[in-house]
Design a protein around this nucleic acid. Sequence first.
DNA 1: CAGTCGCG
DNA 2: CGCA
Length: 222
Amino acid sequence: MNLLTRGLKTMDLLTELRPEQMTLAAGAVWLPGFALPQAEALCAYLQQHFVPHPPQQMMTPMGYPMSVRTSSMGDRGWVGSAQGYGYSAVEPSSGRPWPPIPPLILTLAHDAALKAGYAGFVPDSCLINVYAPGNKMGLHQDKDEQDFSQPIVSVSLGIPATFLFGGARRSDKAVKVPLQHGDVVVWGGASRRFYHGIATIAANQHPQAGAQRINLTLRKAT
DNA sequence: CAGTCGCG
DNA sequence: CGCA
């Protein structure tokens, strides 16, 4: 019995099959399980990171808080406030510089980018988004970076999430990608500025992360 | 005028 | 999907 005679629709294919690599749009690649070898070490490392650098809810310029909590590593960290969005060399709550991105994460990001077709990726910013059940992220573009020739590398840890990957306009139809612990998504080239987001997170539990999804987003900000 | 990682 |  093949997949078509079982009556599977496109969404079912995405949830049942775990291809080694799948193209979501021109220049955008989903790498299921690419970070699984490092995932447990990453979770442990982040737990330690969160002690001196607790994730905080950023504000939007429209006056609403975002539902996710965020922290950062690297020369720059992404911050949001009533004044707008951008990159900061210091953690707003403490005024101290962000801690460096550890080699484990730099290497993972570099290797994932290479696998997706982007050689020589050296990020200077790692945004850490922490999602609890009920949290979400509306469709948006990553457009606060200086150099759009560099891709974005996104690492998923903890409980699952539905990643929404749209197009150049916010109203473009978005593909739904069922991200799991250890999945990596890389987007660049034509898709570098495409809209993307995260659907409301369902209640869930993960052995390493608890009731959380932790997303690492690696960028070259400067 | 452009926006807008939010909301209804 | 369009806001103000």
